[in-house]
């Protein structure tokens, strides 16, 4: 218990003094997760719209599969990407194993089902009359889709936040294909995992607090956006 207490104090010191290593690791976590989130969003919004606005055989099943993939284990995604980008894999020649790019690819795959699935439910939540009113006012297909997306913007922002949260908090995937290389692919979660096993609880706690603090900041920012 004393350990924990001292650890907390040390952690606060590390944060307040803007310890370079802590800041660097936190910054890396943030930009890797943010990049993954932005890339995934660019893919997921059109994908979710296409799924929502079209009738096709197996639509229900596809949505069910997407929802199941919300809880896919991060290590499973890590393994999947690992197979592709390891030296012997089909994309081995790219040499991206144990780089931030590998982590970003993994995270995009991890959160695509989440953002896509939640985008579909966000769009389903929009009053059917909105689309119809748009059509009656002369909107073409694309204009109608953009309007409905706009009407669903708050729910879609929540979807993106969910995606970001999952990316920034995962550890299995970053360890497996990022390699936790100091100064290169070490993120908050992989650092916590390592430092804890080394017995360096202060650093772990400091990083843990920063992670929660980051999550809080992101949520506050998006909340501000919603209430504008």
């Amino acid at each position: 218990m004393e350990n924990l207490w001292q650890g907390l104090i040390k952690a606060l010191q590390l944060i307040i003094s803007l310890d370079p290593e802590v800041i660097q690791i936190a910054g890396r976590s943030l930009w890797i997760a943010a990049t993954s989130c932005i890339l995934a969003t660019i893919v997921c919004l059109p994908l979710g719209s296409i799924i929502h606005f079209n009738k096709f055989y197996g639509k229900r099943l596809l949505i069910n599969i997407l929802q199941t993939l919300y809880s896919v284990p991060t290590v499973a995604v890590g393994l999947f990407v690992f197979v592709f980008i390891s030296r012997a894999g089909p994309l081995g020649s790219l040499g991206i194993m144990f780089t931030p790019i590998a982590v970003i690819i993994g995270q995009v795959i991890l959160i695509t089902p989440v953002i896509t699935g939640l985008t579909v439910s966000a769009l389903s939540g929009v009053d059917k009359g909105i689309a119809e009113t748009a059509v009656s006012l002369g909107a073409n297909r694309l204009q109608k889709m953009i309007l409905v997306l706009r009407e669903a913007r708050y729910a879609i922002i929540s979807a993106v936040i969910m995606g970001f949260s999952r990316a920034v908090s995962e550890v299995g995937l970053s360890l497996m294909i990022g390699g936790n290389i100091k100064g290169f692919t070490r993120t908050i979660t992989t650092a916590i995992s390592l430092e804890t096993s080394k017995g360096n609880l202060e650093l772990s706690l400091a990083l843990g607090m920063i992670l929660i603090f980051l999550a809080l900041l992101v949520n506050i920012a998006f909340n501000q956006l919603q209430h504008r």
Binding site: T133, G138, R150, E151
Partner: peptide, 24 residues
């Protein structure tokens, strides 16, 4: 054009609502 029995307005300003058809 159509005015429905229970008209649905978009979640935006009155001006932007009316502008939609013209922008499109």
């Amino acid at each position: 054009s159509l005015v429905q029995q229970k008209p649905i307005v978009f979640d935006m300003s009155v001006y932007d609502n009316i502008a939609c058809g013209l922008k499109w």
